[in-house]
Design a protein around this nucleic acid. Sequence first.
DNA 1: AGGTACCGTGGGAGCGCTCCCACCAGTGAT
DNA 2: ATCACTGGTGGGAGCGCTCCCACGGTACCT
Lengths: 351, 351
Amino acid sequence: MATHGARGRSGGRPTLEEVAARAGVGRGTVSRVINGSPRVSDATRAAVEAAVAELGYVPNTAARALAANRTDAIALVVPEPETRFFAEPYFSDMLKGVGAALSDTEMQLLLIFAGSDRERARLAQYLAAHRVDGVLLVSVHADDPLPDLLAQLEIPAVISGPRSAAETLPSVDSDNYGGARQAVEHLLSRGRSRVAHITGRLDVYGAQRRVDGYREAMSDAGLGVDEGLIEAGDFTEEGGHRAMEVLLERHPDIDAVFAASDVTAAGARRALREAGRRIPEDVALVGYDDSAIARHMEPPLTSVRQPIEEMGRRMIDLLLTEVADRRPLASRGLDRRQMVLATELVSRSSS
Amino acid sequence: MATHGARGRSGGRPTLEEVAARAGVGRGTVSRVINGSPRVSDATRAAVEAAVAELGYVPNTAARALAANRTDAIALVVPEPETRFFAEPYFSDMLKGVGAALSDTEMQLLLIFAGSDRERARLAQYLAAHRVDGVLLVSVHADDPLPDLLAQLEIPAVISGPRSAAETLPSVDSDNYGGARQAVEHLLSRGRSRVAHITGRLDVYGAQRRVDGYREAMSDAGLGVDEGLIEAGDFTEEGGHRAMEVLLERHPDIDAVFAASDVTAAGARRALREAGRRIPEDVALVGYDDSAIARHMEPPLTSVRQPIEEMGRRMIDLLLTEVADRRPLASRGLDRRQMVLATELVSRSSS
DNA sequence: AGGTACCGTGGGAGCGCTCCCACCAGTGAT
DNA sequence: ATCACTGGTGGGAGCGCTCCCACGGTACCT
C-alpha cells in the first residue's frame, strides 16, 4: 500500500513543483517522467522517481484533466433500468471483460444506468460536460438517440451490437447470423426437419440476423423456408411461451425449435410441456446465449454461446484506439471498424 | 435533451468568462449564479441564466475540481470480487437505494470493486489521489485495513455494518440483535422450544449480534441457553448444511432452527430433508435477509427482512453530511453517528 | 572553423474555475 | 453631514498540471 513519507510542509499533498525541487530538476522534467516520456536521461529519471517515492507524490487528476483536456475515464452506459442489469448475466460478463481489459490501464470505468428519462437527462448533461473520454454503449435499440448525441458531442464511442448493417459507430458483435446457422444445422444433423424459430425483438439488429441465419440454413439444406414456422418473440419468457403455443397450433408436427434466447427457450419449454411434448424425444430445443438458465434447465439446454467477456475486451481495445487517435477529424469515420466474433454451439441434452 | 445554441466562436465549449461577457456581468457573478448563491439580485440572475441557456454553457468539472478542491463524486467500494456482487441481491438493493438518494444531487457515484490484491492496490492509489469526496464501504470484514487508510487520508467514509461495537466510522446497520430476537420469539410463539441457531461468519460483527439476540431471546423465555444448540456457519449453503448435520447429530430432538442467512437456511433445509425431517411439521426454519431464495424455497422460507435499500439511502445522507461538514478537524469525530434500522419478520410456511 | 542537427532540460503561459478582497451604492443610526 | 453597515458586484490570484518554446550542450557533418 505504498509509502508516503513526508508531505509538503503545509500538510497538503505534494505537488509536481515540490517533487521537482526535491529532485533538483525542473517541473517539465518531472512531468515527463510521470508520463513516461522517453526524452529523459536515465539518471534524471532515477532521481525524479526517488523524489516521487520519498514524497509519496500522486498526480492531481483534476489539474491534469484541466491542463490536458482529458479525463482518463470512460463510461459504460447501460440504457436499461438497474434491475435488468443485475438480472441478465450478459451485463456482468460484459463488465468482467471490460474490467479486465481496463486493469492494465490508467483508465477509470464509470458505470452509468440510463433506464428512466430522468437518468437519460442526467446522462446527457454528463456527456455535455465531457466528463469522460469515451463511451461504451451496450444493448442499444434501433431508435435510440444516444449515438447521435455522442457523435454531435464528438465523444468517441463503441457500440456492442450494431443498430443496422449501416452502423457508423465502431462496433463489436458476435456472429448472430453464423450462430443461428450453427443452431439450425445442429438440429438438422440430429435428423430433425420441421424446425421452427422463435425470434427476438425484431427492432434489435442481432435478432434480425438470427432470423436470416435460420432462413438460409433451412434453405441451404433444401428444406425451403416455411414462414409459418417463424414466430416473433421478444426475448422474454412470456413471449417465448406465447410464440410456442401459436407455433404448435399452426404446425403440430414441429420436431425442433430454435429460440432466439435462453429465456425465450424457457418459455417455449413450458408451452411444450403443457402440450404434452417431451424434450428432446418429441421436440428438440436450442437456445441462444448459453446463460446460467441453459445449464440449469430441465433438461439442460443446448445453446449458442457468445463470447461476451471477449466482446467486452475488444470493445475497450477499439475505444482506447479511438480515444488515442482523435486526430483532427480528417481521416476519421472512413475506416469503419466493425468487429464480429465467432459463436460456439454448446450441446446439451435438450437436442 | 437541452438546447445548446451557438458555441464560443473557436468551436470549443463556452466558458464562464464568455457567459459573463454575454450577460454583461463579471465572472464572479456568473459563478455565484451557477452555484446557487443567494447573494445575487433577481434581475442579474435572470440575465445570467439566459446567457447560460443561449450558449449552452456547462461548467467544466475539472476546472471546478481543481479550484475548489472537491470532485463531486463518491465511491461505493465493494471489497469483493465482481461475481459475488452480481450474485447477491444485497448489493443490487443497496445500489438502488444509493442511486435513488443520489439522484437529487450533483454527486456522481463510482462503483469500485476491490476483491483482488491488484484491485486493492489500484484503489489505494485512487484514494490517495483524492479522486472522490467520500466513500461508502459495504461488507467490510473486521480486519480490513481500508477504513484505516481512509481515516489516514482524511476521506469521509460511511460503513454499512460496523466492524465492532466500538466502530469509529459513521455507520448504518440494521438491528441484527433485534432481528434475531424477532426470529427466535416467533419460533417460540409457534410452540417450539428446542430452537437451534446456525451462525454467520463470526468475524462479521452483525453475525455476532445475531447470536447475542438468539441467546437473550432464549434466556428471556426462561429456556436457558444450551451452547450445544449453537453451531457456527459462514453464510454459505455448504456451511449451513454441515452445521445442520452436526446439530442433528448432537440434538436429534431439535424442533426449530434459526439460520443467520437465507443461503444458510437453504443448506440447513437440505440436511433436514436428507435426515427425513419435514419442514415445518418436524422442524420449523427461519432465515435472514428475505432474499429471492426465501420466496422461492420449497416451502417458502420465513425470514427476517432488512431494509437494505433504506440503508443505502441513509448511508448517502450520512456521507453527504460528513462531506459538507469537513470543518477544520476540531469538532469532528466526537459525535459518532451510528444508525440502526429496524428489521421485520416476514412469515411464510417454513415456520 | 563554422554549420546543422538533435537531445535533454527549464520554465512561461495558460487550462476554467472558485475564493476572496475591494469597491460601490444605498440605508439607517448618530 | 458623518459613520457604519450591508447587499450586490467585479476581478486578481491561484489551484496543479501539460504544452511548448527556448536554451545550452554534444555530435556529426561540411
